[in-house]
Simulated scan of single mutants.
Amino acid sequence: MALSNSLSAQLRSSALTAVRGATWRNNLRLMRNSASLVSALVIPGMSMLAFWVVFGHAASGSGFDYALFLMAAAMFQAVMFTAGGSAMALAVDVESGLLARVRAMPVHVLSVIMGRMICDLIRSILSLCTVIALGLLCGAEPASWSGLALAFLVALAMGEVLVLVFSGLALRSRQPVQMAGLIQGVELPLLMVSTAFIPLSTLPDRLEPLIAHMPFSPMIDTNRALLNGETPGDSGWEALVWLTGGLVLGAWWVSRTFRRSV
């Protein structure tokens, strides 16, 4: 019994050491990659600022808090870019053979995945703090600090689900790096055909059903409702369905294709 307990403790310690090592490596890699830092800290905020400069004055004339409207979109864009960058980093590790070498070591595959996701969580936190600070400087007025905090946490959860989905898609491909590049290429166009930057009511009637129910729209609208101190309602339930499906599918893809790819 004592031997079994000792062995279990050693295994737990080894797993924690592996997770810490993977997290440290991924964070160090992020800090050395200027493109990833720009994607995390600059692009979402710059997109929000560009739309606010162009449309903010006109919206404020009608009493519309466009800065707050954009903040929800920028928060989602921040975690979405994090997920795309994560898929690319994992794809590079797969094609370089690094993960194959790691698998040959006495390290559980889950440790590598957990290290990757912890690094993504840290990046998302930094990116979200940047866009929130910029949004507040632009005049955004959340209904309450508790609503802002809840929107922050919900955005982090969305980001981790997107990490699993995007990474799973890359790993299922025979050419993971090319697939990850494709994901990064279509992220922004898909965001543009959502409710991220323009209210749904201003769109043509024939496009409203398509745009209202594409996955990004209910997620953004959920955070937007939280920032406004409102109940997410139907958009919240729809976002939950999309996120639950993404969590299940992404986790299954990563667990199955990770082993096959490496």
Rank of each mutant, 00 (worst) to 15 (best):
I198N: 02
L49C: 01
I43M: 07
A50R: 07
S60A: 13
L28F: 07
S4T: 10
N33L: 05
M158V: 15
E208M: 13
T130Y: 03
I198K: 04
L191G: 13
A239R: 00
A196W: 01
P218R: 04
D234I: 06
F197E: 02
M80S: 13
V38H: 00
V38N: 00
L30E: 04
L164Q: 06
G245V: 11
A9S: 10
T23K: 02
V19S: 04
F81M: 15
P209G: 08
R206I: 15
G245H: 07
I183C: 01
L68G: 09
L191K: 00
A89R: 11
M1Y: 14
L191A: 10
G61I: 07
G147D: 07
G21T: 15
L148N: 01
F197V: 10
V92A: 10
L153Y: 08
S111V: 02
R103H: 13
A212P: 02
M1Q: 11
G115S: 04
M192Y: 11
T231W: 13
A151K: 03
L210C: 09
G168F: 09
A212V: 03
L16M: 10
I118Y: 05
S96C: 11
H57K: 15
I220F: 04
S4H: 11
A18K: 01
A74T: 08
F76V: 13
P218W: 04
S235A: 13
F152H: 11
F166L: 08
F55L: 15
A72S: 13
G159W: 05
L37C: 03
M71Q: 06
W252R: 10
P189A: 02
V19C: 08
V248A: 15
A155F: 10
R20W: 12
M46F: 09
R103S: 09
S235C: 07
V109N: 13
E141A: 12
H57M: 14
A157W: 00
N26M: 05
I132A: 03
F64H: 13
P44I: 02
L188A: 03
M48E: 01
S60V: 07
D205V: 15
E208F: 08
R29H: 09
A15T: 05
P218F: 06
P232E: 01
Q175Y: 05
G185A: 14
L169V: 13
R123C: 11
G233Q: 04
S60E: 14
P199F: 09
M158H: 15
L90N: 12
D120H: 09
W252G: 02
L200S: 06
A72I: 06
R174C: 10
G139C: 11
G61Q: 14
G139E: 05
L30S: 06
W253K: 04
G63D: 12
S201K: 08
M46R: 00
P215N: 08
L207F: 14
V248G: 07
G233L: 03
D205R: 14
G115R: 03
N27G: 08
L126P: 07
A73R: 03
V165Q: 01
T130W: 03
A18H: 09
R32W: 01
P215M: 12
L99D: 09
M214E: 14
G135W: 00
S201R: 11
D205N: 12
D120G: 12
L148D: 02
S4Y: 11
L182M: 11
L171S: 04
